[in-house]
Simulated assay, not measured.
Amino acid sequence: MSDNNVDSKTWKLLEKAVLASVSEQRRSRRWGIFFKVLTFVYLFGALALFSPLMGGGKGVTDGPHTALIEVRGMIADQESASADNIVSALRKAFDDKNTKGLVLRINSPGGSPVQSAYIYDEILRLRGLHPEIKVYAVISDLGASGAYYIASAADEIYANKSSLVGSIGVTAAGFGFVGAMDKLGIDRRAYTAGKHKAFLDPFQPQNAEETAFWETVLQTTHRQFIDSVKQGRGDRLKYQDNPELFSGLIWSGEQALGLGLIDAFGNSSYVAREVIGHTEIVDFTLEESPFDRFAKKFGASIAERLAIWMGFTGPQLR
């Protein structure tokens, strides 16, 4: 083979290698541009979707209106139905000079007794400062436990015949892993300062004295719940003839009416139109951005799952 043929083949191989390299660079550049554009479109879409300046805000009006505040889901810190969110919304609604009545639209299984009590107390305080603005709780699917705690602070409570209402009780749940540890041959080593510091530890056997003490804590919380409901509902509550009313049972709306747990049947539109007399509804519910909710719930869910894995949840009105 001549030197010219060798050189020709070498140059062809080099040419192919260079062309392949250029082609790969172009392909990588195109994919890079594609992903950059895709990222830009995604971020722009997210901002457009979640920004309050892009139509995601609440409706407002300059005329007389019925204020609406949603109480949805679990009543707990870091949730949409936290005391901070609900109380802030209540204050804004009451401070609005055009608010002629306020509807609390409730669909919640309850939650923290502390958060529920904060909201209950604030409703009573604001009612005292603004006696001209009546508060109406409207229970949709569910108004149980801590949610009913809140509702009982309203001037009147409305529900559907099939709504679930009540559940006036307190619960604290957990698991015991002592038997499982014995079978697996695992020793629990807990070091504490304070005789009862680890009394809720699910990896240690129950102690009769500590169990009795914990029962007094739950009974105290239950009594506070009952006292608040009695204060809010007054003579309308027919608990003298119904000893099971505060037992934690939950009732249909139809049963709740007979028990004095609610005042009448109706939804939020009905209350705005027929009771308050102003069909224009302005929603004062505070809404966090999805980014904030994700950040909060991510941290809160880790703590919550850890507590569940450890077998304990604190007192809950649900």
Rank of each mutant, 00 (worst) to 15 (best):
I119Y: 00
Y120I: 03
D121W: 05
I123N: 07
I123A: 04
L124K: 13
R127I: 09
L129Q: 15
H130M: 02
H130W: 05
H130T: 00
H130Y: 10
P131R: 08
E132K: 02
I133G: 08
K134Y: 06
K134G: 00
V135F: 01
V135D: 04
A137I: 01
A137N: 11
V138F: 06
V138L: 03
S140R: 12
L142I: 05
L142D: 11
G143M: 09
G143A: 09
A144C: 04
A147C: 04
Y148R: 03
Y149R: 14
Y149I: 09
I150W: 06
I150Y: 01
I150T: 11
S152P: 02
S152K: 02
A153N: 03
D155Q: 08
E156V: 01
I157Q: 01
Y158L: 03
Y158M: 05
A159E: 10
N160I: 00
K161I: 04
K161F: 09
S162G: 07
S163P: 02
V165G: 01
G166K: 10
G166W: 04
G166L: 03
I168T: 02
V170S: 08
T171P: 00
A172L: 11
F175H: 15
F175D: 15
V178M: 05
A180W: 13
M181E: 13
M181V: 10
D182L: 06
K183L: 02
K183S: 14
L184Y: 01
L184N: 04
G185E: 10
G185D: 12
I186A: 11
R188P: 11
R189S: 14
Y191M: 14
Y191K: 15
T192N: 14
A193I: 15
K195H: 13
H196T: 12
H196I: 07
H196G: 07
